[in-house]
């Protein structure tokens, strides 16, 4: 069996689902950040696979932009996490419950 485009897209979909499930079910904010990264990188896999399949460099270039943006997002996110730690001394998602409804 040769590995085709559909296999890459399937793997990407599975990784994306794992990431999304992680964001929705995990309780530790750091783990949620990791799950978010997994979602982004699942998308990157799709882009690279499609670009290779079509012989189009654009998809591979997009991946660089996505990596760059994801890095910036995590940098800001971790900074905010440190601010949260200083306020609450916890990384648990339940610390984010001061405001409801």
């Amino acid at each position: 069996m040769t590995i085709q485009l559909s296999h890459y897209l399937l793997l990407s979909a599975v990784l994306f689902s794992i990431g999304a499930a992680g964001v929705l079910t995990r309780k530790n904010l750091i783990v949620i950040f990791m799950a978010l990264e997994l979602m982004m990188n699942a998308v990157n896999l799709s882009f690279v696979a499609v670009a290779r399949y079509m012989g189009d460099a654009a998809g591979q270039l997009i991946v660089f932009f996505v990596i760059c943006v994801a890095a910036a997002e995590v940098a800001v996110g971790l900074a905010i996490l440190i601010a949260l730690w200083r306020h609450k001394g916890s990384m648990h998602i339940d610390t984010l419950a001061a405001m409801k409804w």
Binding site: S12, F16, G19, A20, V23, L29, I32, L36, M39, M40, A42, V43, S46, F47, V50, I62, V66, E73, V76, G77, I80, L81, A83, L84, H87, T95, L96, A98, M99
Partner: peptide, 25 residues
Amino acid sequence: RSTEAALKYLILGAFSTAFLLYGVA
């Protein structure tokens, strides 16, 4: 509350961006 707002915004913002990006892909 300002920190809490930012973190909620960031997590859900990044979550939605991933969906947007997957749609683009």
